[in-house]
Amino acid sequence: MYQFTPDEIDRVRADYQAKQQGAEDVGSKRVGNLGEIAFEQFCREYLPTEMWEWENEDAIRRCNPESFSGHDFEVFGYEVDVKTSRDVSAFLPETLVENDSDDDIIVMAWHRDAEDSLILLGWEHVAVLESKVRTQENFSGQEPAKLQHLASQPMNSLQDLGPNTANMNQTPDNPFSPGDRVQRKGDDDASEAIVVEVLPPETQIELYGQEIDGEAVRVAFPSSLDEGPGDWRDIDSALLSSYCDDQKIKLYTYKHGNLSYSKK
């Protein structure tokens, strides 16, 4: 099992995206978003980045409606859906099959009441879950109600679906966060900019026809932000990406190593 503690940006984006999505149950959608973020962090830590893809990365970062897709991730070619719940009975085989039998793999994430910590309990193939349900239906013995088995393989065995991997430690080296004020490194006269988006390390970005070698951030300049309908200084830093996307405010992409914190 693996524990994930969301930071303030994760919390704000998960909540705001759920509201923007128009979810009937904002609370359930919010923790579902946090479950996806938790699994993304697990993948980043333990699986090669070229072997998995998060379908909703852009949607959650920009708090937009999600892409039309029946699953949350593709991992080693499998369609993976993340189920997040405070009630562990949601992870019984029969319950999981009833709620989702269209994907290849289901990952189970449990969250505390305060939503301040999530535990990745494990994962299971949907085909295996269906087999367990059929077996249970044919079981003629007396099974104690208190010993119902959750569907779960250890998270670290997920690595066995693909290449042998150790701890990949693919966390970003980028020191910046949304809301930081930055300027071009080595140029004290450079204009101050505001960090809006911190892109995942594996994102392929081209500038002037050449691919950036390193992690990238997207920034907006105050003069452009001032043209928006509201005072951007009152907007939560986690929502600047959503604001700029909604208002079509132009963003500029920089390699993070070419920026420094503003001295102005």
Results as ranks from 00 to 15, higher is better:
W123A: 07
E53V: 13
D81L: 09
L225M: 11
V82E: 00
D100N: 15
Q204R: 12
G27E: 09
K250A: 14
H125W: 13
E130Y: 03
F76M: 01
I235V: 15
M51C: 12
D103G: 08
S85K: 08
E53L: 15
S242I: 00
D10M: 00
K185N: 10
Q136D: 11
Y2H: 15
T203S: 12
T5E: 09
A166D: 09
V198Q: 02
M108A: 09
I105V: 15
K250E: 15
E124P: 08
R184I: 15
G22N: 04
W52G: 00
I105K: 06
D25G: 03
I235P: 02
G22M: 04
D100F: 01
F91L: 01
Q3S: 14
P200D: 06
L118M: 08
Y78F: 15
V198T: 08
Q247T: 13
E55R: 13
R134T: 09
S101A: 08
H149S: 08
V196S: 05
H71G: 04
A238K: 05
S131V: 02
V107M: 01
V182F: 09
Q41A: 15
S157H: 11
T95D: 05
C63M: 08
N167E: 12
Q136I: 00
A38R: 05
S101R: 05
P93L: 03
K248I: 02
Q170W: 01
Y208N: 14
T84G: 13
P6L: 08
P172D: 00
K263P: 00
G179E: 03
L150V: 11
D236N: 15
P178S: 09
S67M: 05
T49F: 06
S131W: 01
S157G: 02
M51F: 03
W54I: 05
Y2W: 13
R11E: 08
D236P: 06
E66Y: 06
W232G: 08
A114M: 11
N33K: 07
V12F: 00
L92V: 05
D236H: 15
A190I: 06
Q41C: 09
L251I: 05
G209V: 09
F76D: 02
A59D: 07
L118V: 14
D173L: 13
V12S: 03
P201H: 07
I37E: 04
D81T: 13
M1D: 07
D7R: 11
E55H: 07
A190V: 07
S101I: 01
S69D: 00
Q148H: 10
D245M: 06
L259N: 06
F4I: 03
V195N: 02
D104I: 04
S131K: 11
A23V: 05
G162T: 04
A193T: 01
W232H: 06
E57Q: 09
Y208G: 10
I249H: 01
V217R: 02
K263N: 14
L150M: 04
D188N: 11
F91P: 03
G77Q: 06
E94Q: 09
F176G: 00
Y78T: 02
R44G: 14
D189W: 03
D102Q: 05
E55C: 13
A216M: 01
A90F: 05
D236A: 14
G35D: 02
Q136S: 14
F73W: 00
D246L: 07
V82S: 04
W54M: 10
S67I: 12
Q21D: 13
K248V: 07
F4L: 04
Q17T: 14
Q21K: 11
K263A: 13
G214N: 06
K185E: 10
G162D: 07
Y261L: 14
G70E: 04
A145Y: 02
D234C: 09
N156Y: 14
